[in-house]
Design a protein around this nucleic acid. Sequence first.
DNA 1: AATGAATGAGACTTCATTCAT
DNA 2: TATGAATGAAGTCTCATTCAT
Lengths: 208, 208, 208, 208
Amino acid sequence: MITAEPKNRRDRRRAARQEQILEAAAVVFSQNGYERATMKEIAQQADVSEGTLYNYFDNKIDLLNGVARAFADEVTRKIANIEANNLRDMMAQLLTDRFRSGRERRLFMLFLYEARLHPEIQQYYSQQALQRIIDETEKRFRGLIDAGVMRAIDPGVAARTISAAIMGFAALYELGRYGGGDNGFSPQKWGAQVTDIFLNGLAAEMVQ
Amino acid sequence: MITAEPKNRRDRRRAARQEQILEAAAVVFSQNGYERATMKEIAQQADVSEGTLYNYFDNKIDLLNGVARAFADEVTRKIANIEANNLRDMMAQLLTDRFRSGRERRLFMLFLYEARLHPEIQQYYSQQALQRIIDETEKRFRGLIDAGVMRAIDPGVAARTISAAIMGFAALYELGRYGGGDNGFSPQKWGAQVTDIFLNGLAAEMVQ
Amino acid sequence: MITAEPKNRRDRRRAARQEQILEAAAVVFSQNGYERATMKEIAQQADVSEGTLYNYFDNKIDLLNGVARAFADEVTRKIANIEANNLRDMMAQLLTDRFRSGRERRLFMLFLYEARLHPEIQQYYSQQALQRIIDETEKRFRGLIDAGVMRAIDPGVAARTISAAIMGFAALYELGRYGGGDNGFSPQKWGAQVTDIFLNGLAAEMVQ
Amino acid sequence: MITAEPKNRRDRRRAARQEQILEAAAVVFSQNGYERATMKEIAQQADVSEGTLYNYFDNKIDLLNGVARAFADEVTRKIANIEANNLRDMMAQLLTDRFRSGRERRLFMLFLYEARLHPEIQQYYSQQALQRIIDETEKRFRGLIDAGVMRAIDPGVAARTISAAIMGFAALYELGRYGGGDNGFSPQKWGAQVTDIFLNGLAAEMVQ
DNA sequence: AATGAATGAGACTTCATTCAT
DNA sequence: TATGAATGAAGTCTCATTCAT
């Protein structure tokens, strides 16, 4: 018999229900932020009663933690699965993948913001989730440097710079019209141009 | 036109009191975030009573709006005052100025995050404050392009890319240890390296 | 007569399970009090599921009633079994037996306190349980009066006075250090002295 | 000017309001016990809103603590004010004073019971309140021993024995009909008889 | 008969806002 | 104009009880 994880029917139901709650929480948290999200609304979104939430998570912050965990797993996996041998493709995928899903954009912002305010999230998110995302990016950069298609920049610095820009863009994007002005700053346009900036830099010629 | 602002003693006193409250609100909001900041705490920080807050601002969100307005004024002014004729100095000042003050870092995050959740802030912040900051940056870039020290990249895209990265770094910085890892990622080190990335790009050689 | 109670195997099993639940409930109620005791904790202590509790008892208050019933049976039986022909031995056993078991002390307090708040307990406990305990004590006192070793005091009044003191001491004892002060008020010391007070009174000489 | 405590009008109002809330809390706690008393009911009894309770007390347990404090003050004062030079009067007043007020009877039970369950109350009540009550009683007994109207029994033991009996009687009394049976056990009758027991003891003759 | 997940009423508590002083 | 006590709506969380499996 091969069925791995969910041993019996009850365990499968529990896992499914937990997933269903996490899904609902991700939706509500990403829409309203942590503080303005209410357990009542999450319960309604998950189509369960409020009490049921507490059968699966200790409290509201634990629920946010669960969402953070699932989110970090997903993003790390996505980055690890990027298939790109040249720098341009890698950059393009790093930059654009983060923007396909509005929920992912908003969760990125959510955790960055809330982590500072909630010690429990801070500990997990900054030391586990974000660390893994950055590490994965760094690893990919290291591969490209070894392949000779990327300058020998500290891959940790590069990974953080790209990650920071992605986060910032996520925020600008969510604010609508990229921080004001609808001057043709379309996804298609900036995708190419931002990649160009990161690849070739801003300087007219190489500056030391 | 002569500075007609503080007409008489009463008006001067009102302006001073309003400034004092905004200052306190900026401190408390930047520390605790909007939702977790309480009017009582702001009042204590400003050394006035809770009721007095309502003599100067309609409600809590109006107070956040006031802080946003003052913040945007200050940042715009700082950017306009940057004295730099070459790209490296410009980049260095853009990147490092935003990190001198912990309060400025946190307020940056605060408005980015809260603007999406509060229509009133959204309207003002994304259309006025952020717009002005980006416009000012764009204008400076345009000058550098005209001076021939910067590639002829769309200055709007460049301004938004830099701004996004700054915001992202602000968040990473606040999370402590730059998102995990104490691998010598010191302010001195990343200041130079990040500038290098933005000036010269990541690619081993110019990529089209 | 052969113990005719447990007719068949199923009944024996039911009785054993009921006993097991009552035992667990007595432990949890005596530790936490009625309101703070949870059905979940009682179930865990009894090593059954929450649902099973409701197969043996209608609800929480019915469970408390069951504990009260068993408790009254046990105490009444103990008093009836005291073997003492003189007043001093009787007093010593009445006073000290109630303190051997911490659980018995706490259950004494529990029922006294909760009975007033819960009509169902009130009815049973004050009219059945306590009544039987006091009646049994009264009966024993009557025997001692008849034997001429005890003054011809109303045995009902005497029984209630002794019972009241026992309850009060149970409470003081549970509070730790007998209401404060560790001035040598050891079980050995007060056992003898309290008996002396009840036997010989406080007055310097017989007062009318 | 002699007016001591309440300096100005606002302070007087605050003190009065706090008193009013404590009064209401004492009523509701004594009627329903701690757990079953609700903040809503206390607020209604005090004729204020629920929120106002929290302007004067940190939380529910702090409110119970406040009631305990006031109660201990009152009982200690009453005992100190007993005017009695002979043992019979002293006993009569100790025994009967505690029973005049149903609220005092019930509060006695309340604190004895809850103190064990709530560490905060435990600390204050058993170490401060009860200690003071017992100490005051002990002091009075010492005076009677010195006056030669009381046997040279350890006054600490005597004070605890009397206190224990009083508490136990308070409980029996509250249970209605003194633990069942309406056999002429009237307040008048038991007052005299219990005093007799404590004065002269149960034994037919002095027992060693 | 046993299980334990689901339910939802109701508890405590917070806090923006009002208003009498 | 300044104060801060009062308000009460709304939030998080608990837990006795039910019921499908």
